[in-house]
Every structure is written in C-alpha cells, then in structure tokens.
Design a protein around this nucleic acid. Sequence first.
DNA 1: CGCAACGATTTGAACGATCAAATGACGAAG
DNA 2: CTTCGTCATTTGATCGTTCAAATCGTTGCG
Lengths: 338, 338
Amino acid sequence: MASERPTITTVAERARVSRQTVSNVLNAPHRVQPETMARVNAAISELGYRPHRAARQLRTHRSNLIAMRMAPFSEDDAGSVLDRFVHAVAESGERLGFRTLVFTATDDDDEIAGYTDLLNSYELDAFVLTGTHHRDLRTSWLRRQGVPFVTFGRPWGVRAKHWWVDVDGKAGTAIATERLLAAGHRRIGFIGWPVGSGVGDDRRSGWELSLRAAGLDPSRLVVTGENTVAEGYRCAVELVTEHGAEALVCVSDTLALGALAMIRDRVSRGGAIMPVIGFDDSPGAAALGLTTIAQPLREAAATCVRLLTDYLDNGTENTDKANHHVLLAPNLVIRSSG
Amino acid sequence: MASERPTITTVAERARVSRQTVSNVLNAPHRVQPETMARVNAAISELGYRPHRAARQLRTHRSNLIAMRMAPFSEDDAGSVLDRFVHAVAESGERLGFRTLVFTATDDDDEIAGYTDLLNSYELDAFVLTGTHHRDLRTSWLRRQGVPFVTFGRPWGVRAKHWWVDVDGKAGTAIATERLLAAGHRRIGFIGWPVGSGVGDDRRSGWELSLRAAGLDPSRLVVTGENTVAEGYRCAVELVTEHGAEALVCVSDTLALGALAMIRDRVSRGGAIMPVIGFDDSPGAAALGLTTIAQPLREAAATCVRLLTDYLDNGTENTDKANHHVLLAPNLVIRSSG
DNA sequence: CGCAACGATTTGAACGATCAAATGACGAAG
DNA sequence: CTTCGTCATTTGATCGTTCAAATCGTTGCG
C-alpha cells in the first residue's frame, strides 16, 4: 500500500538529474539552474520527499536538535514558568528548523552527565540552560568543551563570559512600585527571598531604587522568607502590623499569594484593602486575580533560539558582544489585587 | 587536546577484534565469549566510546526517540498537569534508553502535520498523545499509518482500539465524596463542566454514584460552568445558597479555587466553614491549601513508556488486551480545605 | 586556433553503524 | 579419517546523505 519512502536517488531519477543536484537544490540553490531546480522541486513534491535527518547528520555532524533540561517537579510556581519556557523554545525552534529534545536531571552534575551522552550519542547542536546560579558548574563545563549554549538567566556572580538572555527583574519591580506610588501609596513593603540569590537581589533592587527615587526610605520595609505561601502570609503580617506597610510588592507569586490571603483575611475582619503585586504570572496568580509582573517568555525563547543560530552559523568569532547579552523588559499584568 | 571521537572501529582495533564483534557486545552479548567481551568492554570504557545514534538509526530505522506535543499555553491549571506529564515521560523514557522530543501544534490537523515530518525526517519510534477527545482525528490517522502510539487518556466515545493509560476520574471523585460522607455531610454538591466532555462526565459519575450508594439523591446538587475561577465562584454561590449544599466536590482545581474563594468570603461574613475538594493537584491548589485529587503522573508516564516498548518489541500481535488498557487510581491530597 | 577559466552537473568516496553471508576452529558422528 | 554441524568471529555490502574531485560544455581572450 504505502510505497517505499522516497530517497534522494528516487527524486534524482524522476527529475533526470544526479543525486548531488538534488542535494544542491536543497542546500546550495545558487549552484543550480532555474529550470533544473524547477524540475527537481516538482519531483520532490510529487514524491513527498523529505531528507532523512540521520543520514544527513552522519555526514554533516549536525543534528538540528537542541536540548533543554526540564525543571524538576516542584511545588512552587517557578516550575510552571520554566515549563512554559520549554514550550516556547520548542515553538521558536521549529520555526528555524530545530527540534527540541528534553531531558531530566536531579542536579548540576547529573545534568552534565546528560550533556555528555547527548553530545556523544546524538550530536546535539546546542543547549538552552535555565536557572543559572552562583558558581554554575554547567556553564564552565560547556565552555570548556566548546559546546554552543545560551542561558535563560544571567550568569550571577562572575562576569558574563557566555551568551545569555534574561528578564530585567529590577525593571519589573520598579514598574510595580511606581504604579503603587502613582496610586498615592508611600509605605510600600517588599517581601523578598533571603539575600544572596541573584534573581531575588535583583528584583529587590528595583523596588528599593524606586522608593529612593521618590525620596522615600526603604529600610524597615523589607522582610524575607523562603518561597512558600505560608511564609508570604507571615511576611505580610510582619510588614503590615509591625512596620505599617500600606502596599506590597513581592519577589514571587508564591509569596504574593500568601500576602494576598493575609490581606483578604484582614479585610474580612474590617481592615482596609491593600494592593499586592507578585512576580511571574503563574497559573495561581491568574486564578486568584493577583496583579503580577509577567516575563515575556515567548520573546525570551525566540531570542535564545536566535542567539543559538547566530552562534552555530558564525561561531563565537566576529561577534558584537552587545547583541549577545539580551535583557528583556517584563510587563505588568493588572488584575484585581493591585 | 580533545582527541577524535572514538568509533566502533577504534574500539575494535584496541580490543584486537573486528567491528562486528564490538557491535555484538552491544547488541547481542550472547554471541560473544566472556573473555572477548571483557576485552571489548575494557576498550569501550577506556576510550569512552558511545555508539553514534545517527549511524545506527540509518541502518536500523530506529531512532530511540519518542515525541509528544506540548499543550498550548493556557491560563488554566490543566496545562500544568500536562507539562508535568511531559517531564515524567522524559524521565521514564531515559531509563529505557529513549529520548523525548517535544513539538507544538495549534490543533489536531496541525499536530498530524507534525507527525508526518517527524516520521519522515526523524523516524520517530513512537508517540505519546495527551488530551484525547471525542472524534479524535489523530488516533485514527496514526492507526491508519501503523505508527506505534499510546494515549494518556481513554478514547472517549468509540470503543478502545488503541493502547491507552488513564487515570480513573470516577474513582477519584468517589474517594472525595466518601471522605465528605464519612465526615457526616449529606448535601454534597458537585461543580462540573457542561455535559459532553468525556473527562468531565466521568468525574461527575463518581460523585453521583457515591451519593446514590449512600442512599442520597444527587439531583439539584450539580451545577456546571466553564473552567474558570469566576465560574467556580458563581457555581458555589448557586449550590450553597439555592440548593443548600454543605460540602463541595469539583471537577477541576480551577473551579474549586473559585468555590474556595466563595466559601472563605462567606466565612468572613460569619458563615459556616465548608469543605471543598478539587481535582488535579495544580500548583494553585498547593499554594492555597486546597484538598484535591492528584493524578499519579509519574506512574502514568512510566506505564505509557512501558506500553510503547512492549509495542515496539513485540508489535501489536500476540498481545494480551487487558494489559494495554491501564486505568490508574488517583489519590487524595489532603490539605486545609477539606 | 588553442587554451584557460568558469559554471552546471555528475561520479566516487565517506560518515559510523548493522545485516547477511563467509570463514575458521573444534568436536561429534559416521 | 572424513564430514558435518555448531559456535565465535570476520568480511563485504549497505542505509541516505554530503563532500571533494572529476567531467562536460561554453565562453573569453591572446
């Protein structure tokens, strides 16, 4: 029933040319004459020919595959952001002829072991890394091996030696803070993560700078906690009752949801309504009407893929540094909470 | 510095055997003598040899790749369940030597176009499908092409012709309902989706049967709405104020979160506390303390992968039907809401 | 007219593995 | 002692593609 899969030779015979000419039509069109090309293209579509990636890969050592580690199962919302990011990378990759392969790992060492296998066995073209952190073993290993990669997230701590795309957390919290300032609030509190995480510190600085720019003193208006809803509740209590905060900006939606719960409890006991703004636009935020700062994930993914193709086509030479460190602006999603 | 990538021939020379013997060590160990095998294995590990998948694939027509479509971006929590499922499939696949490739599509037709490319160009071994629905074009297309696949989700409507794994939604809502019955509640309401969706109807039936089994009348205790938080709120109002419900089981976490918000508002106005149970164990549920029915995603994924390897190894013949339709039991995650 | 240069196309070899068939060694059976 | 079968191993061919070099036909120019 289903005839044999057409190969480049089948197409060549049908178009009355040689294998190589068909190959040229596909890979070096400028070398073939228009009329020949037309004949070949006709044969290709009549037969429904698609080049066989494995055969091509065997010769060229390019797989047209990029790989990403999927974030481990986690209770918090951050996982969902990364999952959406994987989706976006797959989508952008397809547009440029790449497929996306996902793999799992429990920690950095495990992830590096995964790279080894993927590189040796599958000849992956490139990697997209997420969740960069201080002293990241992965990036230094990949650099040493000369493997093309881009990170979604800046290299925290050391100076940027590799290509990256990130979202400007500082700008995000600044926008949020300014919205609250514009609404007339003065004592705007910040619920953050413990000092020392690159992302957390960055996000906090946006809030802090905005307050200072407005001539306000941020000290005593920041409380930190681990990334759980319960901690968010606790931090909110502390900020509101002890330090008199009258609006809240949070480093994450998880903490913000805790804060929101605290405010709503308080309202139900006759307290004043108080705005709360989160960060990440997680599903939970949408569900509960939390105003939050959304990362432009599709754009981030598209940029990552663009950088990778640049890298693969031109190598690391002859590059214009500025274009390989991309900081994207987040945007505020306004819902009922603020 | 980095020496050439070792090939099967390099290994063969080092172990003083032929290519084919090395190949046999890897693919048909019973054919080689223990001492030869030891020598070959030593050479393999000394050189760090890994077989080249593309070369192998060119000969065998097996890619050791499975593909899954990623669910489109969506605001609701269902997306997050499927993303976690992708993760789990990748994880189980790795254990059996498969890598997982993800792709995107906007609808069934688009997804089928994706299959064509993946099959022709990449020679994918198999597919995992999610989100089965009535009149699913994808499954019939794949069957017609003779492509191995497994669905996560039963074939709704028509009789099961293909292999599937699913979670027993009916059992899930039954457990939830029985828990509420055991706590002494009688008027247990159900917030569902409009009739006609396989999943929704199935989940509803669990609640309904449990009520009947307890000698209670479920009529007038079910209200349906689209899958949004606002609708959940509305349905809860209707069930509680108009039909006197005193506990709620919901078809999804999204609806349950709306119901939970309604109950909490009510409590703050002096109303009675009332249990609410959701479905899916989404991140939002964890964040807000919603008791919910969790799907055993890792187990479901592992089963899908197992079925696929069965299929690939033994074909569709000589099969014992019962084992190829797997219904897994969900479990209740108890949190503060019920 | 002869020869170099060029463009379009074809031919031979190679990528790294597996399959199918051939070879060699060894014992058992006739 | 020959023959045959079996087991372990080797050799030759092949998968579908691209690279590198060869071929063929035109054109340009001294």
